Structure formats: C-alpha cells, structure tokens
Simulated scan of single mutants.
Amino acid sequence: MERIWDQLDRFTDAPTKQMLQALVKRKVKYENYAKQCRRWQWTSLICFGLLCLFFIFKGFSLNQQAPQIMLEEFLNHTVYLFWMMAAAFAYCTSYYFKKKEEKAEREYHKLRCEIIQKSTDLWPQPEKWKARESVFQLMKHQYDINLYFESK
C-alpha cells in the first residue's frame, strides 16, 4: 500500500495526497461498519428464527393449550429466556452498527464529493490535469472509489 502512495507523489502534492489517504481510511471504516452491521443482522435473524422454532415446537408439545400457560412455560425456562435475550442483544447491536455505518458513509461521501468539487484547484495546470486522470483511475481500480461523479 505504501508503494501506491509513493507513486502518487509524482501526480499530487502533499495536501492532496493526505486528502486521498483520508478518503481511503474513511472508506475502510465505512466498509468495516457495514460488515459488522450485516454480521449482527444475520445473528439477530438466526436468534429470532430459533426462538420462533422453540415457540412452535413447544406449542405443539403443549397441545396448543391456553396462551397464558404457554407464556408461563416460556418464561420459566432459562433456555427460552436466553434466546430472547440473545435475539434482543443482537438486534440492538445491529441497530448500533447501522447508525455507525450511516455516519461513516456520510463522512466518506462528503469527503469524496469535496475532492471531486475541488479537483480543478487540486490539479490546476494542464499537465497536472492529465495526472488527475491517473490518480482517479488508480483510486477506482485499487480502492473502488469513484472520483469521477458525485452520485453514489
């Protein structure tokens, strides 16, 4: 990765290079939060699914008696309480990471749009403008960051 940033020395000045490095860090941060969010969402879904299976099988074993008896049976066993708590914890954690992901995405997109808007200032001379194309292609192929258009 250092080799890539060394290549950028001939195409960009130090502040531009720092902006691009910050952009890559923000994208990595955003992707990490997105991965954590997906992981906890799947965990939540599996916990809720297992809890529903427990309810269905226990309901059939109790011969579908009164709902009060079924609810009492579920609340008296620690296994059911454990799965309820695990499902609630997984859901809350996925919600937490979703908020973090959205914030990281806003920060990443804001910096990306700023670089796009300031590209005429960052590469002012005509010969530097040609170097801009090399930098944009490098960022696109190496990090999958689109610096050509502001849309997501």
Rank of each mutant, 00 (worst) to 15 (best):
E2Q: 04
R3M: 14
I4S: 12
I4F: 14
W5Q: 02
W5T: 01
D6T: 13
R10P: 01
R10V: 11
F11W: 08
D13Y: 01
D13C: 02
P15H: 00
P15E: 02
K17P: 01
L20N: 01
Q21Y: 13
A22H: 08
L23C: 11
K25Q: 14
Y30C: 01
E31V: 10
N32V: 13
N32R: 09
A34M: 08
K35F: 03
Q36T: 14
C37E: 03
C37R: 03
W40F: 15
W42C: 02
S44Y: 03
L45K: 02
I46V: 13
I46P: 00
C47V: 06
G49S: 15
L51M: 13
C52Y: 14
I56N: 05
F57Q: 03
F57R: 03
F60H: 07
Q64G: 07
A66P: 05
P67I: 07
E73V: 06
H77C: 10
H77L: 10
V79G: 07
L81A: 08
M84N: 06
A86P: 01
A88L: 15
C92I: 11
S94W: 12
S94V: 11
K103N: 07
K103H: 05
A104S: 11
Y108P: 04
H109Q: 14
L111F: 03
E114K: 12
K118N: 10
E127Y: 07
E127H: 09
K128E: 07
A131N: 14
S134F: 00
V135T: 00
M139D: 02
H141C: 06
